[in-house]
Nucleic acid binder design. Structure first.
Length: 256
DNA sequence: ATGACTGGTGTGACCAGA
């Protein structure tokens, strides 16, 4: 079973690239972030024509998450993160697909920090951690994947010293990620590649992709019931080099 | 240190992203 995550940065603007990558990569399940489209503008027909069914939680202009599946029914478990009825952002959707609980998230960026956006990020993180606590020790396999907007350690950033005051790398942010994983979650990429330099995002500025000046911010967390089934994990770096690419790369795992 | 690039919105001297 191949599960992918991809921050598309606008699903309609990105549709040709998304379809090309789906055709090439053929993941069984795909978590998408940053749809930047309201529910009624989700391109369902094109997704269906590519062989996928979908559930999504859109929003005008910003945010938006979706789960796609090829060949297996998607049973939606939740849309929206619990814990704050006033939170209007579409940043979380969760489903059961082929016996695996899939949580698809788009954690807030949080810049500029400090400030209200950073406060929102930490608050969202704390709500997410609380929700994850109810999932980690389930007998069911659970994967929480998406754009975490966190570089967990220094090797996850090109020139980490430039990011120490940034919302993606501040001590509070890294501590929140550590606090989450210490519930018992396994970072799939780091389980298979503990020390390699691996990036999932490259800024549109300054030829970041060409210079390999990236960040690792898109992650797969696996609960103990799933960890032993991890066979492979990879970043589809070449997709970032395509015309009209997202600034994020697709990332995927393969399970037994 | 700064600004560079992109999508969406709507035509902004825009916002937000990371």
């Amino acid at each position: 079973m191949k599960i992918a995550t991809y921050n598309v940065n606008g699903i309609n603007g990105r549709l040709p690239v998304l379809l090309r990558w789906l055709e090439e990569s053929k993941p069984d399940v795909v978590c998408l972030q940053e749809l930047k489209a309201p529910d009624e503008k989700f391109p369902l027909q094109a997704i269906n024509d590519a062989g996928y069914e979908a559930i999504w939680h859109g929003q005008k202009s910003w945010n938006g998450v979706a789960i796609l599946s090829r060949g297996s029914e998607i049973k939606e478990l939740r849309r929206g993160l619990p814990g704050d009825p006033d939170d209007t952002h579409s940043r979380y959707i969760e489903a059961l697909v082929n016996g695996v609980v899939i949580g698809c998230l788009y954690l807030p960026n949080g810049n500029p920090a400090p400030g209200p956006k950073f406060d929102y990020k930490l608050k969202w993180f704390s709500r997410f951690t609380e929700h994850a606590a109810g999932l980690v020790n389930r007998d069911l396999p659970v994967v929480l994947c998406g754009d975490y907007n966190v570089m967990p350690t220094e090797i996850d950033a090109y020139k980490p010293e430039r990011w120490v005051d940034d919302a993606l790398f501040r001590p509070e942010t890294r501590a929140a990620f550590k606090n989450l994983t210490e519930q018992g979650w396994t970072d799939a990429i780091r389980k298979l590649y503990p020390t390699e330099v691996i990036y999932t995002f490259f800024d549109y500025f300054r030829n970041a992709y060409g210079r390999n000046a990236g960040l690792r911010i898109d992650h797969f967390l696996l609960n103990p019931a799933l960890e032993g089934r991890l066979k492979a994990a990879k970043v589809d770096l070449h997709v970032r080099g395509w015309e009209k690419s997202s600034d994020h790369c697709p990332v995927w795992i393969e399970l037994d």
